[in-house]
């Protein structure tokens, strides 16, 4: 093996030329496992959070299954369904009590896409679950409009998102 000559303290030593990457690979492997474990498909990771502040809960739970759920986010500025802008919050507030057509249309579109995925065998049966990420300042009347719309469009399993207090 070829070697590099090093002059240390007046004595000449030979050091191996190749750099041992084993330790680095070990660190990388541990880091990779940690990151994969903590990676999340959470709705929050793909949604702007600067105008969405979730409430804090002490009794929330992680969903049992990792099934596909449509994500409905209601921030201080806008309403998005599956990360698609549907309407502004002002429009939601001015909407009449009852169902909201814009949200209903977006849910219909998402359901059609889900049906297509089911048809291709890429997804299990339609579960009708929806994750609602609501800003803590959202009022009950607006919340009720959204929930009614979800229910009318077949999304009857409603999961309200919150940040755990612990």
């Amino acid at each position: 093996m070829s070697a590099i000559r090093l002059n240390i303290g007046g004595r000449t030593r030979e050091a191996p030329k190749t750099l041992s990457l084993t330790a680095l690979i070990d660190i990388m492997t541990i880091l990779l496992i940690f990151l994969i474990y903590n990676i999340s498909d959470e709705a929050m990771s793909s949604i702007r959070t600067d105008d969405l502040s979730l409430p804090i809960t002490s009794s929330g739970q992680r969903p049992d299954s990792m099934e596909t759920m449509v994500v409905l986010a209601i921030s201080q500025q806008s309403v998005t369904v599956d990360n698609r802008l549907v309407m502004s919050i002002a429009e939601l507030r001015s909407a009449k009590p009852g169902t909201v057509p814009q949200i209903g249309k977006a849910l219909e579109d998402y359901r059609a896409w889900e049906q297509e995925m089911i048809g291709r065998g890429l997804q299990d049966d339609f579960a009708g679950h929806v994750k609602i990420l609501g800003d803590e300042s959202l009022t009950f009347i607006d919340m009720l409009k959204v929930m009614r719309t979800c229910s009318q469009k077949g999304y009857e399993g409603i999961y309200l998102a919150a940040i755990p207090s612990h």
Binding site: S45, R62, G157, L160
Partner: peptide, 25 residues
């Protein structure tokens, strides 16, 4: 992989409260 996963990582996991439909709905 590491930078990609670092961008996807979340340190605070969101929790959910299952809700039954509004009485009216």
């Amino acid at each position: 992989l590491v930078p990609f996963l670092l961008t996807s990582i979340v340190f605070v996991q969101i929790q959910f409260l299952h809700l039954f439909l509004p009485v009216e709905a």
